[in-house]
Amino acid sequence: MATKPMTKTQLVAALAEEMDSDKKTAGAALDAVVSIITREVSAGGAVTLPGVGKIYCRERPERMVRNPATGDQIKKEADKQVKMTIAKALKDSVNS
């Protein structure tokens, strides 16, 4: 079955090994990528990570929702939701 998710420390170590670099440089590169993705998606754009997928923001309209504890209907304001579409290449590599 599935194991625990990779932590940021483990990801930085693996990235440093893959890049033949030190952990400080790999950590800075990872932080830069995350910063760019966050800035672009929060501005309404989308970012495609080749071989991984596409990260984008979707607007949801105002709607009626139900409180499961009380059953009361309340109006929820319009909001934004971050979504990710997984690339076919990644799906195929997982399923092969």
Rank of each mutant, 00 (worst) to 15 (best):
N67H: 05
S35H: 10
E40M: 03
N95T: 04
T38L: 10
K83H: 10
K8M: 10
V52D: 06
D92H: 02
S96Q: 12
K80D: 09
L11N: 06
A46E: 14
E18R: 15
T70F: 09
A89R: 12
D20K: 13
I37Y: 10
A14E: 12
S35G: 15
K8C: 05
M6V: 15
G71H: 09
E77N: 11
S93F: 00
K80Y: 10
V94W: 12
R63E: 09
E77F: 00
G53I: 02
D31V: 00
V12A: 00
V52P: 00
P61S: 11
S93R: 14
E17F: 00
T70Y: 08
M84Q: 07
E40G: 04
P50G: 07
D79E: 12
A43E: 12
K80H: 14
V47G: 05
K54Q: 11
A89F: 02
G53C: 03
S35P: 04
K54E: 07
K8L: 06
E17N: 12
L15P: 02
I55H: 05
L49D: 07
T25Q: 15
A13D: 11
P50V: 15
I55R: 01
K83D: 06
E17P: 02
A78V: 02
A43H: 08
G51F: 04
R63H: 10
S96T: 09
T70C: 08
R58C: 08
I36D: 09
A43T: 00
D31F: 05
Y56L: 08
N95L: 08
G44C: 01
P68S: 05
D22G: 07
D72V: 11
K76E: 14
V41Q: 04
A29C: 10
K75Q: 14
A69V: 06
G51N: 05
A26R: 01
A89E: 14
T9V: 06
V94L: 15
V82P: 03
E18Y: 11
R66F: 02
D20S: 14
Q10F: 03
C57K: 15
A13C: 06
T70Q: 07
A78H: 03
L15F: 11
L11H: 09
E77T: 10
S96K: 13
S21D: 13
K4F: 06
G44L: 02
V52Y: 13
K24D: 11
C57R: 15
M84D: 06
E40Q: 09
I74Q: 09
K75R: 15
I36M: 13
P5T: 09
E17D: 13
G45D: 03
K4S: 15
I55W: 05
K23M: 10
R39K: 13
G53L: 01
P68C: 02
K4C: 02
V65E: 09
K23A: 11
P50R: 15
D72N: 12
Y56C: 03
L49V: 05
P5Q: 11
A16K: 03
V34G: 09
N95A: 12
I74H: 11
A87F: 02
P5W: 08
G45Q: 05
S42Y: 06
M84I: 15
R58M: 11
V34M: 15
K88L: 02
K88I: 00
L90D: 06
M19V: 03
L90P: 00
E77R: 14
M19T: 01
E59G: 08
A14Y: 07
E62W: 00
V82A: 07
V12T: 04
T48C: 08
C57V: 15
